[in-house]
């Protein structure tokens, strides 16, 4: 089979392979289970965010407010629990955070789906609103004494092991959340009319309306779903880092969008795959954590990600431009 270099998935996969080959060449210990578990662990939050961001891009919009939603849902849930119900089991805690996230997503949904405001600007606005509201009215102090159930959750390990040098490695059960999110999203996108409608709306809003797709409802769902995912990512982040920091997470949104776009989702809507998105996440996580292994100082992290974005999105853009010139 011919490798299609114009497809971002293939390109990103090749870059990941090259990266790993380079890393293994300079440090043989790189190719090991601890490295893998570290990468997987570091990819949980970014991964959940990315799946949501991908969904928004597919529907033809863009969302930069999800990190603020995550921080809001996570911190509000934590403070509420500490005051009123510190003993709730973790599934309930997660549900509360997700519902909060979904509610904030509703606000985006109404502004975008009902009032049809431009998505980038709306979510820039709601990013400020959510964050401002959180820090003003809910609180701005870090909380390290989390409800016991959150701490317990972070101790649940899928497996753990010991390295040759005696150090430990492990993969928390939180990783399963990412897997569930991916599977659920795959099911929605490919096995439900709602999911197909998201693709259809991203492909052409006008056509979707003409054949009777409920465009408003579809877009609304997207923003609510992304809100819920953000709520989930937020609470997992707090649990794993054993700290509810209201200043956390905001600022990640551009890296998330970078991962999704690297994975082949298009800003114009209608295109995006889970495989591509996860590959994009893997690449970003690799660069963020293991750049030093291939001999690049970590101060070059941001340059590297920038170059990856420019190459990863510039190459297809350039090919499209040349193709247009050739055929026109």
């Amino acid at each position: 089979m011919k490798l299609n270099l114009a497809r971002n998935e293939v390109l990103v996969a090749l870059v990941i392979l090259a990266f790993c080959a380079l890393a293994a060449a300079s440090d043989p210990r790189f190719l090991s289970i601890p490295t893998l578990t570290d990468l997987l662990r570091n990819g949980i939050i970014l991964g959940i965010f990315s799946v949501g961001a991908m969904l928004v891009l597919v529907s033809g919009g863009i969302d930069v407010s999800f990190t603020a939603i995550a921080a809001f849902a996570m911190y509000t849930t934590t403070t509420f629990l500490l005051e009123h119900a510190p003993g709730l089991p973790w599934p309930v805690i997660f549900a509360i955070s997700m519902v909060l996230g979904a509610l904030l997503g509703c606000i985006n949904g109404v502004l975008i789906a009902v009032f049809r405001l431009p998505t980038l600007i709306v979510t820039l606005g709601t990013l400020s609103v959510f964050r401002g509201f959180l820090l003003t009215f809910v609180g701005s102090n870090m909380i390290s004494a989390l409800p016991p159930e959150m701490r317990n959750f972070s101790r649940l390990m899928m497996f753990r092991g010991t390295n040759a040098d005696g150090s430990f490695f492990s993969l928390p059960w939180a990783f399963a959340a990412l897997v569930i999110v991916v599977v659920l999203t795959w099911f929605i996108l490919h096995r439900t009319m709602l999911g197909r409608s998201i693709f259809a709306v991203g492909g052409s809003v006008e056509s979707a309306r003409r054949i009777g797709i409920k465009v408003t409802r579809t877009q609304f769902f997207v923003y609510v779903y992304v809100g819920a995912l953000a709520g989930l990512a937020g609470i997992i982040h707090a649990s794993l880092s054993r700290l509810a920091n209201p200043f956390d997470l905001v600022g990640l949104e551009l890296s998330v969008i970078a991962a999704v776009v690297l994975g082949g989702a298009r800003l114009t809507g209608g295109y995006g795959t889970l495989t591509g998105t996860l590959l994009g996440v893997a690449l970003i996580v690799l660069v963020q954590n293991s750049l030093i292994v291939i001999g690049v100082p970590s101060t070059f992290q941001s340059i590297t990600i920038g170059i990856l974005i420019l190459v990863g999105t510039g190459l297809p853009a350039w090919q499209a431009k040349r193709q247009a010139a050739r055929s026109a």
């Binding site: 009319m193 197909r196 693709f199 259809a200 991203g202 492909g203 052409s204 006008e206 056509s207 979707a208 003409r210 054949i211 009777g212 209608g270 295109y271």
Partner: peptide, 17 residues
């Protein structure tokens, strides 16, 4: 009024589905 990003099969069957 077609969907450029979807397949032929899906475009044909979408309304009916």
């Amino acid at each position: 009024s077609l969907f450029p990003n979807l397949t032929v099969a899906e475009n044909i069957a979408f309304s009916s589905q």
